[in-house]
């Protein structure tokens, strides 16, 4: 199997190549789902929005810009759909308590244990805990920056704000995180 670059697939899609289209779907559906579940708790809506993004991608393939970063384009389309369909957007990451509680109950493998000792164990855990006390936008911007490695310009486009305010958002989020972990622990 040959690894096609995003740009090859993208131009294939613009030409109406179904194989390129389905490869793009395969490549990004997991990441998109993962991102969406951080900003929306409704699984059905996530699925609907992801479908809509890909249907629109095919439908308007001829009008797509040539040089766009594919990942960024998909994230942006997905996000705007999620918020458009959400009259009552609620910020909620946990569906009840079970997921995080389960995570904590489960034993770490020896390698993971080693890793967490190396990384300052307790402190990291505290920081992690307070991540969910940040504002939704702070949390989202931080995840896009650290996890997805988008640039501030791209995050700005995705979240509909200018790059400088995204910088501030991330900086303030990290500051809060430190303070929470320091004083509330």
């Amino acid at each position: 199997m040959t690894e096609c670059s995003d740009s090859v697939l993208w131009s294939g899609l613009k030409r109406g190549d179904r194989t390129a289209f389905s490869m793009l779907y395969q490549r990004y559906v997991g990441l998109l789902y993962n991102y969406a579940s951080r900003i929306c708790k409704d699984r059905d809506r996530i699925e609907d929005c992801i479908q809509d993004v890909f249907v629109a991608l095919w439908k308007y393939r001829k009008n797509l810009a040539a040089t766009t970063s594919v990942k960024y384009y998909l994230y942006r389309s997905l996000r705007s759909r999620i918020f458009k369909t959400a009259e009552d957007h609620e910020w909620n990451l946990q569906d009840g308590v079970s997921w995080d509680d389960m995570e904590n109950l489960i034993d770490l493998s020896p390698e993971e244990e080693l890793m967490s000792i190396e990384s300052g164990d307790e402190r990291t855990r505290k920081l992690k805990k307070y991540l969910h006390n940040l504002s939704p936008r702070q949390y989202e911007a931080i995840m896009l920056r650290f996890y997805d490695e988008f640039s501030y310009e791209e995050i700005g486009e995705i979240m509909g704000a200018n790059p400088q305010s995204i910088r501030n958002l991330v900086a303030r989020g990290l500051l809060h995180l430190r303070q929470y972990a320091q004083f509330l622990a």
Binding site: Y33, E47, T124, L131, Y147
Partner: peptide
């Protein structure tokens, strides 16, 4: 501390379909 912050963010659970 910066390392720990990055690690804390990266250890957020992933939810794939």
């Amino acid at each position: 501390e910066a390392r720990r912050m990055v690690l804390a963010v990266l250890s957020e659970p992933e939810r794939f379909p």
